[in-house]
């Protein structure tokens, strides 16, 4: 049996918001260590890897591994009904047909209970070996979201170029071009505002802007985002959770 209680429903709301536009159906795999999701978008360009660690829950119990096949659009309709500050509890039997979603208001004696029908989903699980990256950038997630939104208005591609001194985000469209250059710096007072650039080899990669626009929907999960890049390889974009992470792997574009 699974019984997981969150101190606030806001974490699950943000997680669902962050992934629902990339994938529609996915298995939530529940183990004694927490909840994981791995899912690939229909075009097989973007992969989502989520870990909500046991410590993200106020109370957590999962005696046997349980798979919850969830339609995220339906789940989102239910999860939106809770207030962000409500306790949120997920309950499922060992071989469940549905999952119970319970919201409890902390001040009033109001309990809202919903049941979501589960689906039997096939999922190709992809093997992601430990990848070696040539460059790692950590920056404020809101700044990365703004750069993405701004440059996406010019072109359907977004180029990321990393040199020793800086990282350049660039787009080249029909009516014009744009770029944003960031240098590494340390903000002692607000560490989350810092920009850290680690580069072993220079990088020049191009990605589909629409996919990065989906990735930045994770912005509300974390103050900062880490971007890991390697030549001619998928990039990794990571938002850290209080215990766990939301990672996106995005395949690059190549010259034909």
């Amino acid at each position: 049996m699974l019984e997981g209680k969150f101190e606030e429903s806001s974490l699950m709301k943000k997680v669902v918001d962050a992934i629902k536009d990339s994938v529609k159906l996915c298995n939530f795999n529940c183990t004694e260590h927490g909840v994981t999701v791995q899912a690939v978008d229909d075009s097989r360009v973007l992969l989502i890897s989520l870990l909500i660690g046991e410590a993200s829950f106020e109370e957590y119990r999962c005696d046997r591994n349980i798979t919850l096949g969830i339609d995220l659009e339906s789940f989102n309709k239910i999860i939106k009904n809770g207030n962000s500050s409500d306790f949120l509890t997920l309950i499922a039997e060992d071989s469940p047909d549905n999952v119970l979603i319970i919201f409890e208001d902390k001040k009033k004696d109001r309990v809202s209970e919903y049941s979501l029908k589960l689906m039997d989903l096939d999922s190709d699980f992809l093997q992601i070996d430990d990848m070696e990256f040539d460059a790692t950038i950590t920056m404020p997630s809101s700044e990365f979201a703004k750069i993405t939104r701004d440059l996406k208005t010019l072109s359907e591609s977004l180029q990321i170029i990393v040199t020793k001194e800086n990282v350049k985000f660039s787009s080249d469209g029909d009516f014009g071009t744009g770029n944003v250059v960031l240098k590494g710096f340390v903000d002692m007072d607000k560490p989350d505002e810092s920009i850290k650039i680690d580069m072993a080899r220079p990088i020049n990669l191009t990605f589909g802007a629409k996919y990065i626009a989906d990735i930045v929907k994770g912005t509300s999960l974390s103050e900062s985002v880490t971007i890991k890049l390697a030549d001619k390889s998928p990039a990794l974009f990571e938002y850290k959770l209080p215990s766990g992470f939301l990672r996106f792997y995005l395949a690059p574009k190549f010259d034909e």
């Binding site: 075009s43 992969l47 699980f125 992809l126 093997q127 591609s157 574009k253 190549f254």
Partner: peptide, 14 residues
């Protein structure tokens, strides 16, 4: 013109 790569070219099925 650049062509979008698939993740399947990089990651194997388990």
């Amino acid at each position: 013109k650049k062509k979008q790569a698939s993740l399947m070219a990089f990651f194997g099925k388990k």
